[in-house]
Design a protein around this nucleic acid. Structure first.
Lengths: 343, 343
DNA sequence: CTGAAAGCGCTTACAG
DNA sequence: CTGAAAGCGCTTACAG
């Protein structure tokens, strides 16, 4: 079906080297020669074969996206990330393969050993991540989405938890709130233990609280609707003066809201709720629609791939990029109540 | 780093052909020879290079997942599908690349022309799909997730809309409901026009209604929470005797529920709501948690890849597989109200 | 500006 | 049971 370079060369009466020079634009070629070659390519429907090229050039132009399957659900924003990464790669002439691997070294070692990929994009990085060691040891170029604890020599893009939390907190402070509760995810499950996003956002929150001068209350809860409902009760019983809740737990947020409503707490009149790093879909499916800091999933995918490709093409190493979420207005936050507390 | 076959052959004092026979287990090799080769492979950390193998064997062992990016959001169940497809491929020694391409022929033609993939898994198939033509014309083996109108000679896996709708309807009939409304997705947007799932589930619904003897009311609404709320009002005003609603619109379902509640309709005491082909996450994030027919995303991914690989390995063509959703109990359906209607 | 040639790491008839 | 050799479709020094 598709013609080879050799066939094109014969048809144009040149050597296959010259065809290669035209295809890759790597050396000057006389105008008429180029013309003949281009005509032949057109006529024979020449498409450069990636496998031959990969073997000869020792570059496959395939990169892998490594993420832990099953362990935790990536959800809708995960799909956004993945699609954006694949498109960015595609536009640069690369392909993205999906490696949903368990978070251990053996499987990844085996995969990189196959020589299919030029580099790896590593998602859901743990603070101490065995996969980072595998990639270092095998000299596989890679970029982190997230951050491990030891970052020396690593290229990464991540969420800017400091700025995201600052914007979130300042939105609430600006509405007059001073009695905040932060609801974080549970680190019970192995795959969430010392999970970067939880650790970093909690740290950012403490720092901001110290600077702005308000009390820190952090409640952990599992990533389910039921746990969200339970945490609502904890807030009402243990912290009744709370006027605003910051949720960093996409799966618990709906439950938190319904738990509050169920106890007669009005949102946002009595208590404001701000959901951090949730997808738009999740936010708008709740009643009232959640004010949220949206997750920069698509941008992270794009920047992560771009940084990786720069690594592969020998450009200057990309400086770390940290992206903040964006405030998406909803109906769940409002001015602090001025009358007597309802709780 | 990784040794080549030639190095292994030299170390073991054999030809590279013999090494190949051992690696692939394609020809009998004397026990001692095999032993020497295996030791050398172990010692030199031999890993068979996929690119060399691909070029020589004319099979890359890479398959592509083609799906329309952007056009409509795939959401959480999309991620499940994708991950399951990638894992199934991986376990069979294949890789899955992601091709989020616009739904037109040119881009896909260019991609398959590169010779990177042995076959394609086509998602979100339209009834008349130009991509199917591209794959036929280029003689690319492929499998559909979904179904085009003309299925001659095609291998596909899809949701069993008949059985899924039957189970959904019978659940409601079993609770005594006779006045049903079905809420479907809107086909306004181009990417949803004559979208298989909408067309087939509506057809199934009409058939079942005729068999069971109840009136057909189908309302279309856009895939947003706001549209869901609006459709709730349409139901209450135009069809006040309704006792149960079947929603085939994951994104509108939460709005439908809150719209009903907002008008004082109790769920499920006054009206039951059953959400068809939604993800578990979406169902449980609503209050009350939605009774739903879950989407068999992971199973579809697995079966789709298996069917494609069978095609590639020249096995007998897989018969079409249709998978029904499973009823996931929630709190949004109950016995039909016996007292006077509330609406 | 162009070509002959080696080689990327394998597989696979073919011969023995 | 094993090997020599051709070849998969390209790229890339090297020479001219």
């Amino acid at each position: 079906m598709a013609a080879t370079m050799r066939q094109v060369a014969e048809a144009a009466g040149v050597s296959i080297a010259t065809v290669s020079f035209v295809v890759n634009n790597t050396k000057p070629v006389a105008p008429e020669t180029r013309q003949r070659i281009e005509e032949a390519m057109e006529r024979l429907e020449f498409r450069r074969n990636m496998v031959g090229r990969a073997l000869a050039s020792r570059r496959t132009r395939v990169v892998a996206l490594v993420y832990p399957a099953m362990e935790h659900k990536l959800g809708a924003s995960g799909m956004e990330f993945v699609t954006s990464a694949a498109r960015t790669a595609g536009r640069a002439g690369y392909h993205l393969v999906l490696w949903p691997v368990s978070n251990d070294a053996a499987e990844l070692t085996q995969l990189v050993g196959q020589g299919l990929v030029d580099g790896v994009l590593l998602m859901e990085v743990q603070l101490e991540d065995p996969r980072v060691e595998v990639l270092r040891r095998t000299r596989t170029p890679f970029t982190l989405i997230g951050r491990s604890a030891d970052l020396t020599g690593l290229v990464y893009v991540d969420i800017d938890f400091d700025r995201t939390m600052e914007q979130a907190v300042d939105h609430l402070l600006g509405l007059g709130h001073r009695r905040l509760v932060m609801v974080a995810g549970s680190q019970e499950e192995a795959s969430y233990r010392s999970y970067g996003p939880f650790v970093r956002s909690a740290a950012a929150y403490r720092r901001i609280a110290a600077e702005r001068g308000f009390e820190v209350v952090i409640l952990e809860c599992e990533q389910t609707t039921a746990a969200g409902r339970a945490v609502a009760e904890r807030i009402l019983s243990a912290h009744p003066a709370t006027t605003a809740v910051l949720v960093l737990n996409e799966f618990a947020a709906p439950g938190l809201v319904s738990g509050l409503l169920r106890h007669g707490v009005r949102i946002p009149e009595d208590v404001s709720v701000l959901s951090v790093l949730t997808s738009t879909e999740a936010s708008t499916s709740v009643e009232p629609a959640l004010t949220s800091m949206s997750s920069p999933g698509a941008e992270l995918g794009e920047l992560g791939v771009q940084a990786l490709l720069r690594l592969l093409e020998g450009g200057p190493a990309s400086p770390p990029r940290l992206l903040a979420g964006t405030l998406v207005p909803g109906d769940s936050t409002g001015p602090v109540r001025t009358g007597p507390a309802a709780g």
